[in-house]
């Protein structure tokens, strides 16, 4: 067992995982618990991680599953096709753009927010995100495009006009 290797992995990826956990749960305390649980599960199975290059996506996938488990939602068919039309905020005042962006990210439906955060915070490619979410790469790209356009439409409508048709 490569204990040092695992420790290095904890130090390397814990803040990325914490941020992703926050955006899944939108709760800082729960995010900490999720990261701890994810690393605990990862430690138990560390020997099974054959490709150390894949450690990051492996950890993110474990964290997603810990989140699903902790959330224990009752319904199975949740918000698969939530659309973005209802997303809205007041026009941001000068200097408040970042706060508005935070609020918009909070309001973004989970099926759009999750791939966006995997890309923005995790730096994963469309193909990696597709594997993690078990959806097609094309579907990932559509969700990323729509999520970004929805945010831009509200924060910077002029620039969003230059976006291609994302319908």
């Amino acid at each position: 067992m490569d204990q040092r290797g695992f420790e290095a992995m904890v130090r390397t990826y814990s803040s990325d995982l914490y941020r992703f956990a926050y955006w899944l749960s939108r709760d800082k305390h729960l995010a900490q618990d999720l990261v701890q649980e994810a690393f605990s599960a990862a430690w138990k199975a560390y020997d099974s991680l054959r490709d150390k290059e894949a450690a990051k996506s492996w950890l993110f996938s474990i964290l997603r599953n810990e989140y699903a488990r902790s959330f224990q939602r009752k319904r199975l068919d949740i918000q698969d096709d939530v659309e973005l039309d209802e997303l809205s905020v007041s026009v941001p005042a000068q200097g408040q753009e970042r706060v508005e962006l935070e609020n918009l990210l909070q309001a973004l439906p989970e099926n759009y927010r999750e791939p966006l955060m995997l890309q923005v915070l995790g730096g994963f490619s469309g193909r990696e995100i597709a594997q993690m979410l078990s959806i097609t790469e094309q579907n990932v790209m559509v969700r990323l495009t729509r999520a970004r356009h929805a945010l831009r439409r509200l924060v910077d409508p002029e620039q969003a006009d230059a976006d291609v048709d994302v319908a």
């Binding site: 904890v10 814990s14 955006w23 701890q36 962006l101 990210l105 923005v120």
Partner: peptide, 23 residues
Amino acid sequence: QKLRCAAVDACGDMPPDLCERIL
């Protein structure tokens, strides 16, 4: 860039002792 900053800022800093707690 703004999006990333907003996403990072909203989480706040990771508690400094989290790594030690995990280990």
